[in-house]
């Protein structure tokens, strides 16, 4: 019997190894899998490359993972946001690498990684510093830059509903990078707000088909990053 549900966040992240490339869903706090990130901090894996749109805020979630020096490199589009201090300090001290990627290019590098396409041409970033050193080519009179896809060892993704097969639905704009990150990782690890019986999610509304998912943990009352930041909490508490 296929059953991808595990009992705890700790069990969900137990095989993440040092040096892993990990995609983490979320646009700001919307869709950020805080409980999985905190379990990863407890687990101790280091020298990680993290692919995520932002760098977290306050001293919780992704910002806490960075603060604990587990991350050697960030691949992201917008590393500074409100209440984001951990990454800027380490970056200015030269203690963390940054690969800055236009947001749409980041999305397409992940999508193509999951789709088995190793590279693609995009018009975004042509004639800017972010295209420097990259191959370019003209198609129909327009210049495009060659971008490589990204594949990850693991993805950590937050979703709304999941079943034991790994079929997922999302909530509102928390969907953001989740579906494509599930496709681009060898193992997509999911925290679901609700685990439902197989068959309860209408096949017409499944967003991520179960084939892309490795394992799921139910987190019924996930914390809100902004609440933790407002309370100035640090992980681990």
């Amino acid at each position: 019997m296929i059953n991808k549900i595990v009992k705890s966040a700790a069990e969900a992240v137990k095989d993440i190894h040092d040096g892993a490339i990990i995609m983490i869903s979320g646009f700001g706090e919307a869709g950020s899998p805080l409980e999985l990130i905190h379990a990863l901090i407890d687990q101790g894996a280091k020298d990680l490359t993290i692919v995520s749109n932002n760098t977290g805020s306050g001293n919780v979630g992704l910002a806490a993972l960075i603060e604990h020096k587990r991350v050697k490199k960030m691949i992201c589009s917008f590393p500074r946001t409100a209440n984001s201090t951990v990454f800027p300090e380490l970056y200015n001290a030269g203690e963390i690498e940054l690969e800055l990627v236009p947001q749409g290019t980041l999305a397409e590098r992940i999508r193509s990684g999951g789709a088995g396409v190793p590279a693609f041409y995009t018009p975004a970033s042509v004639n800017t510093p972010l295209a420097e050193g990259k191959e370019s080519r003209i198609f129909d009179g327009i210049e495009y830059v060659l971008e490589r896809s990204i594949k990850a060892d693991f993805s950590l993704v937050k979703c709304e509903q999941a079943d034991r097969y790994g079929n997922l639905t999302y909530h509102a704009t928390a969907r953001n990078f989740g579906p494509i990150m599930c496709t681009a990782a060898k193992k997509a690890i999911i925290q679901a707000k609700k685990v439902v019986e197989a068959g309860r999610i209408d096949p017409e509304v499944v967003v991520t088909p179960g084939i892309f998912v490795e394992r799921i943990v139910e987190v019924t009352n996930p914390v809100n990053e902004s609440d933790l930041v407002a309370q100035k909490l640090k992980y681990p508490w």
């Binding site: 970056y91 800055l100 995009t122 975004a124």
Partner: peptide, 15 residues
Amino acid sequence: NAIPAVGGAMDLVAG
């Protein structure tokens, strides 16, 4: 010393 952040601007102007 500025932290570079680009977001979706380059994709928007390109497309």
